[in-house]
Design a protein around this nucleic acid. Structure first.
Lengths: 232, 232
DNA sequence: ACAAAAGTGTTAGTATTACACCCATGA
DNA sequence: TCATGGGTGTAATACTAACACTTTTGT
């Protein structure tokens, strides 16, 4: 390294909070660590950033290596830089949050042996996590609670085609409160960003619900990038 | 450094977007650099983080050294980590935004010679800045535009005692649009977080306006940390 | 026929918008 | 007395919140 740059360097990492929605329950992805420190503990998927890769890219790479997941919605959350957050030295971490459609069985295939396995865990009763990962998770949850009210991120957790009840369930899981069914539907449909399909739900033992798609084109047109969802 | 930490290290820095409000105009703090790269250019105040200091602390220290400012409202904004954002090597930067009361003449006293001087510049016609600082500034402006609608950050830019018109001017400067005077006042007073003082504005050559204070106590009580300001 | 979830409207209350004139003060 | 900004109210509209029953379907 050259000229004016200082001699003291630091290590930095990324950690990912990956949200998934399954069985009406909001979950995040955890890994069981296979390395010191916190060997055998559960933690968020995360690892060191290479010297020659951008941090956004690193976040995607690391998530892929630790879980086999790729091409999912991901945003930077916050950077945690307390001096003592890593027991073995100064490591600054850039946290990301991500959302994924859990379609039945997404198999998780870590390709790295720094973790023993990866698995989904409901956010309701998270165990104690290694490092400051509990704090990171909490911050990510706050973030999506706010974000879901002005950006259409709920759709990232649902399959392409979904029912209004499923959509409401996502909102309820993230906001952690019940919403009124009639008001919810009225509001959602009013935005004009859902397209009702000719298709109906299949394989249920009761009245089949109409299926909808999120209409990205209409969304982009109507609100150039933003809208006010769900004050409820 | 020990055990499992990798050999590749990186350098990181903090950069600060400091907002001030003066003569009805929103300004940010710039420095004239006295070092390569971008020697002689204007840029955001920023510098490298020490190996043994937390990043929040580093942000405060660096702002103080480059400007003489201390104890001001400051929040982390975003981390910029493209590989090539710094021309001399890999430098990841954590950006902060800050707000300060500009009471007449805040003298700026850099105590470090890595900058020639520090000065306030209106955001309306910012020059080209060094590094990716223009991008950082834009992100910070987006952030406060949003934040001012749900957190009482406008008060950070005003003196302890202010008039409703001054407060409205802050909103207008940040949102970059005119607001209706009657509606603004009604709304603000309705929140119940302003305390009207017995005092009036002095030294003006027209009808003196009533002075108000932001009532932090009431604010904290009413809304445990949040409220919805100004959809206007 | 029954269990389970889908689907549907109205009303009351609250918040938002648009809009224009008189008032108090210092020069 | 004039110039300057301070201060004020109302009506129309849009949004939010609360609330319960009928319909459809598969078993």
């Amino acid at each position: 390294m050259q000229t004016g740059l200082p001699k003291f360097h630091s290590i930095f990492s990324v950690d990912c909070v990956v949200f998934g929605f399954e069985d009406g329950v909001l979950k995040i992805l955890l890994v069981e660590r296979n390395e010191e420190p916190f060997n055998g503990w559960w933690a968020l998927p995360g690892f060191f950033v290479q010297h020659d890769e951008g941090i956004d890219y690193a976040a995607e790479r690391i998530l892929y290596e630790l879980t086999g997941l790729r091409d999912i919605y991901m945003e930077q959350l916050y950077t945690f830089g307390d001096v003592n957050r890593h027991p073995e030295g100064r490591v600054i971490t850039v946290a990301y949050y991500a959302m994924i459609r859990l379609s039945g069985k997404n198999e998780l295939h870590p390709t790295s042996n720094i973790v023993k396995k990866a698995f989904w865990h409901p956010i309701a009763d998270l165990p104690k996590l290694g490092f400051d990962h509990t704090e990171i998770f909490e911050k990510s949850l706050d973030k999506i609670k706010r974000k879901i009210s002005y950006q259409p991120i709920a759709f990232e957790l649902l399959p392409e085609k979904f029912t209004l009840t499923q959509l409401q369930n996502v909102y309820e899981a993230i906001l952690n409160k019940k919403l009124d069914k009639r008001n919810f539907r009225k509001k959602m449909l009013n935005y004009g960003i859902l397209k009702e399909l000719d298709e109906k739900q299949r394989g249920v033992s009761f009245r089949a619900a109409a299926l909808y798609k999120f209409d990205r084109r209409k969304y982009a047109k109507l609100f150039q990038k933003e809208l006010s969802f769900m004050k409820d």
